[in-house]
Each structure stands twice: as structure tokens, then as C-alpha cells.
Design a protein around this nucleic acid. Structure first.
Lengths: 344, 344
DNA sequence: GACCGGAGTGGAACCGGTTCCACTTTTGTA
DNA sequence: TACAAAAGTGGAACCGGTTCCACTCCGGTC
């Protein structure tokens, strides 16, 4: 366990000053004679020297690091998002510190403090919806914030990358209505979240277009954590006038909801047509394969990283941006026309 | 965008020296008069002061940060592992920098360099199997390395946390043999990985116990990336004397393998009994639900973090540890006795 | 009443980079 | 040939913490 060489070791081994070595390391910071440059590079190679990022960070005041604050890595949607962001960041030479909130505002607040201590240049987050003042403080200290998937409407000056939530829900609902279903259950995220509200709105819009009134009992906004999806399924299917279609618009509850359907022995699509928000690879191997709203996760990752890096380089206009990417509706065999659905 | 207060701001606002403030921050580093302590804490609170971790890191030489080098967050197994580790680390006040290798030794090498620059105190990793000298160098610079899930036998002095791979594979194979199957396909990870080898070994051990010889054609070691699982399924099922059982012991290829089975219209368990390595929640909602080897992911996370933190605090004996945790075999309805399997 | 030891405090060096500035050498131009 | 501008270099301050050390008070003990 020997200690790593420092810039001064390199300088003295190469017979130059530390300034020269530093300029070799950061070419744009000043000129170096080509011959000397090669020589220094040789010494660096030979000694296996690597600059310590803490030292650099201390003197320049910030790091090429972004914080990623995500609800839950065990949810495949967030896991894939994180995967893409980490990947994309690396290709830009940027590091990612991943934190999870488990949807708990308290933990979220902790995470933000920690990221502040690390003086990250930017944060990409799926906010819980709380901690408004904390987010604002973060921004006032110069940390660039980009929300992805969801947002907090009360917070000004935040970039947002999301899918077209209203439209996606509208499209899924529209499809079911066109198949003749008139009683469609909706399991959404909490109305305290922007995605929850938007998807309910899309659901309503489709009904309006078809001039079909909505039974409020059919809309269930459930928390992301826990087993609310399964419970909602149970409760929806025990309604006197039970729905013939179901849209699960809460990615975190898809698994729970589907499991309950299987446990209850519900036949899909004979008893119930189903569409879920999630392009989880497993949706293809259930029987039948599920119709899904496919979220373009790579696009979300690319855009959010681009935004946060753009802000960090100051290469973006002041005004906050909202990027909405299209989500595809992928029909599979979990939906059938109402005519084929026998009434119980 | 005002700049954050420093320790000197706090000191002058409180009318004390920076030493005192520092001692308030790190109580074990020296005495402070109780009255003064409270006063300084008040000023800290009032100014919203937070110590910058870069400065501390620079002077103490290391950070309470561990690097997590994982193959692929899009794989639910690793995603859950990462989730648990990040979670567990937070409760110890430790940060986690997550990197992914996508099973590429080149990217793995990059990741290690980066972690070195960050002077992390420890690394938890699922190694690709390459970069032996790089790992050794990391250790020689005082970075504690804990491998999880897999290991590199050539590398001495590394802690390892894994499931009982040999035994798990043996158990799964044994179960199938007891059902009367004699031709059991095995899709494992590459033999260049410790898990690949161990699981094949367990498969062989079970056969020996039952005095059944193995047709080498039935063992397919496929890469983690790509679609090797699906291809292996196709090829196994087109053998003249096709297997009546299949064990997928490559977590990354379960999804691909199962998808191919579905696409080919293979009836489970009538045509083929199936066991997979993965306790992915989705295995319960396929039809039929799949028999699985359930990896105790939380245990893996807890142990690996405990090991790496223990090493960082120097509270562990020198000798490397190997922790093997039991993996449960969970029988579901994807396996049937051979008698019920019609011969084609 | 002199002496000792420990609590409490401040000064300043240090960690390993970056960068400003002053200085010397080269190059280019009139 | 003379002189200005540019290229190249080294010294030293600085970023914001930690920690060693010297120093001043105390109270307690013979």
C-alpha cells in the first residue's frame, strides 16, 4: 500500500514546474512546448500518475458530477433509466452519484444535502413532490436541476423531461373505448404527482371525446410503494358493475396489479382487457402478452443528461425547458372488443 | 446564486477560531467548551453552513464513499442488488458511486480508474473476470475490494460474497432428476466466470449422484450480453434427442430464454420442465409460474457492504473472507414428472 | 504557595490540484 | 537591427477543510 504520486512528484521527476504539468493536463489553460509536453506525458505514464479529483474540485469549486435522485432502483423503469443515464454520462466523462428516495420526502431531503456537500454541478431527479423549498435552495446555490418523468408545478425554473403523459393515457383509453368498453378501470399514481394527474386527465379527455361519462369509482390513485395496485384490482373487480377494461398507469404498481389478476384467475382478455404503462421486457412473456405504453427510456435519459450538462456549461438560454417525448402504444393480445367479452 | 459559507465564515461570525469550529464538527478530535459548542452550532444553523466534502477528502486522504461496479442495471438482479446496497450504505452515512460495465473489460478498467481518482475507500463489484492486474493495483493503493456474486480466482486477498452456487445448481438439477428427467439442458454463464463454472459443477454433481451420464451437448455456456439464451433454447430444442428439462442458470439470459420458449409455443411443463436462476417478481406472473432459485439479494447487499466498511475501518482480520449465503429453491408449477411428458 | 496536569483555544502548516502573474526566451515585423 | 508581441516557464497564492503544536488558564495536590 504505497501512496499515489502527486503532481509535484511528476514535476520533479520531469524536471519542470508543477505549472507545466498542470498545463499538460489541461491543455486549454496555457501553452507548453511540444517536446516538453511529450516528455511530461511520458513521466505521467511511467509513474502511473492520476490527478486526484478532490484536489481539483476544491480549487475549481465544482465537479463534473451529476446527482441522480431516483425513487427506487428495484422498479425496472427507474433501473433502466438509471442505467441509461449512468451510461450516457460516462461517455461525456461525467460521473453519477445515485441516490434513492423510496418515495420518502425525508430521505429525499437527506439526499439533496448530501449532493450539496459533494458540490455536484447538477441533479437529475424524479421528485417525490415535497421539499419545495429545499429544491429552490439547491438552485439558488447554483446547482442545475432537471426533473425527469415527474415534476413539481410550484417550482419555477426547473427543466423537465417527460413523456406525453396526457396524450399517452388518452391514447390508451381511446383504444379501449373504440373496442366498445365503457367501464374502464384506471389505476394511476397519486394525484399529488404530476404524472398521476396528467394520466387521469388523459383518461378523462378520451371519455369526453367519446361522450361517455365516467364513474368516479373506476379511478384509483394509489401510492407508488406498497401493494396498492393489487388492492385496487381486487376492489375494482368486486364492484357490482365491474369494469371490462383496465389501464394500469402507475409503473410501480403494474407488477402488483398483474399478480393479483393472475391470482384471482381473471382471464385476459376474455374477462378483462388490460393495458399497462411499462415496457418491461416481461410484459411480453406473460400470457397473453400485455398491451403496453412503451416509454422511450433512452430518450428520457439522453435529454435529461443533455439538459443538465448544457446548463452546467452555461450553454443554454435561461428560460426553463420542457421536453416531452412521445410514448408509443403497443397493442398486444391483452385487449379484445367488448362484444367478445361474456357478461357474467 | 450566492456562494456557500465556509468554515472561516462560521468561525468569524461566532468569534472563534476555525479550529474550534472543526472540533465542533468532529467531536472526537478535541475538546470544546459546552457553551461555545452550542453557540457555534447555532451559527452553523443560522448560516446554513455545510462542510464541503472535497476539502475534507483532500486533507484526510480518503472519502466515506464506496464504488459499486455492476454489470448492468437493466438486469433486475443487479438493479435490486444496487438498490439494496445504496440503501444500506446510506444508513451508514456512506455514499455510493454507481458504475456499469456492460460486461466489457475495457469499460471496467475505465471505471476503476475513475474510482481511483475519487479515492474511494472501497469497491463492491461484480467483476467481468478480466483486468486482473488492474484490480491488484487498486488493492495495492489501499482500496478495499469486495466481489459480489462472482469472483476472479487468480486474485488473492479479495473478499467474496455470493450464493452457494454449486449447491444451488446441484439442488435444482437434483430436483429435476428426481422427477425422472434424464436429459436436462443447462444454460449457464460463460465458463470464464466463477458462477458459470460453479453452476455447471453443481449440475454435474447431481448427475453423478444419480449415476446418470451427461450429454455435453446439453450444456450451453452463453455470454451475459446478447441473445445467447434464446439461441441456446432454439438449438437445444432442435436436438434429435431433445431435453425434457431446462435449467437457466444465467440470470441475464433468463428473459431471453423464456421469451424464446413462448415464441416457439413450447408448453410448460408438458413439453419441458423449467427452472430459472432469478427471483424476478415477474416469474410469478408467467403461465405457469416458474420454479426458481431465489437469490437472497438483501443478504448479498448487507454482507458485501458490511465487509467493505469493516475493511475501511480496519476492523477486520487481514485474511480474505468468503461469505456464501444460501439460495432457496422455490418449486412452482413449471416442473412436472417425466411420466407426464409425452414423447414426440 | 509552588507545582503539575488537563481542559480549552488559536495559529499555521498541510492535503494536491489550478491559476494568476512576472519573467525570460523566441518569433515576427517594420 | 531594433523592438513589440507571443510563446513558454516557474513561483506562489489559493480553494476549505483537518490537525499538530504551543500556549493560557484552571483546579487539585503536597
Amino acid at each position: 500500500m504505497k501512496k499515489a504520486p502527486t503532481i509535484r512528484d511528476v514535476a520533479s521527476a520531469a524536471g519542470v514546474s508543477v505549472s507545466v504539468v498542470s498545463r499538460v493536463l489541461n491543455p486549454e489553460s496555457g501553452p507548453v512546448a511540444p517536446a516538453k509536453r511529450d516528455m511530461v506525458l511520458g513521466v505521467i505514464e511511467e509513474l502511473g500518475y492520476r490527478p486526484r479529483s478532490a484536489a481539483r474540485e476544491l480549487s475549481v469549486g465544482h465537479t463534473p458530477t451529476v446527482g441522480l435522485v431516483v425513487a427506487d432502483l428495484a422498479n425496472p423503469f427507474f433501473a433502466q433509466l438509471a442505467d441509461r443515464i449512468v451510461w450516457e454520462a460516462r461517455s461525456h466523462g461525467v460521473q453519477v452519484v445515485v441516490m434513492t428516495t423510496q418515495e420518502d420526502p425525508h430521505l429525499e431531503a437527506d439526499s439533496l444535502d448530501t449532493l450539496l456537500d459533494r458540490s455536484v454541478g447538477g441533479v437529475i431527479a424524479t421528485p417525490t413532490g415535497a421539499n419545495v423549498e429545499k429544491w429552490a435552495r439547491l438552485q439558488s446555490l447554483g446547482v442545475n436541476v432537471v426533473f425527469v418523468d415527474r415534476t413539481i408545478p410550484d417550482l419555477a425554473n426547473v427543466d423537465l423531461v417527460s413523456i406525453e403523459n396526457v396524450d399517452s393515457a388518452r391514447q390508451a383509453t381511446d383504444y379501449m373505448l373504440s373496442l366498445g368498453h365503457t367501464r374502464i378501470g384506471l389505476i394511476s399514481g397519486p394525484v399529488s404527482t404530476s404524472t398521476g394527474r396528467a394520466r387521469i386527465q388523459g383518461y378523462q379527455a378520451a371519455h369526453e371525446k367519446h361522450s361517455i361519462s365516467i364513474d368516479p369509482q373506476l379511478i384509483r390513485d394509489v401510492p407508488f410503494r406498497g401493494d396498492g395496485g393489487g388492492d385496487a384490482v381486487g376492489s375494482l373487480l368486486s364492484l357490482a358493475n365491474r369494469p371490462t377494461g383496465l389501464i394500469v398507469a402507475n409503473t410501480a404498481q403494474v407488477q402488483s396489479s398483474v399478480r393479483r389478476l393472475v391470482q384471482m384467475g381473471v382471464r385476459i382478455p376474455e374477462d378483462l382487457s388490460v393495458i399497462v404503462f411499462d415496457d418491461n421486457p416481461w410484459t411480453e412473456v406473460t400470457s397473453p402478452p400485455l398491451s403496453v405504453i412503451r416509454q422511450p427510456i433512452s430518450m428520457l435519459a439522453v435529454h435529461s443528461l443533455e439538459l443538465v450538462l448544457g446548463r452546467m456549461n452555461g450553454k443554454l438560454p435561461e428560460t426553463p425547458r420542457t421536453v416531452e417525448v412521445k410514448a408509443d402504444f403497443v397493442p398486444r393480445s391483452s385487449c379484445a372488443p367488448l362484444l367478445l367479452t361474456p357478461t357474467r
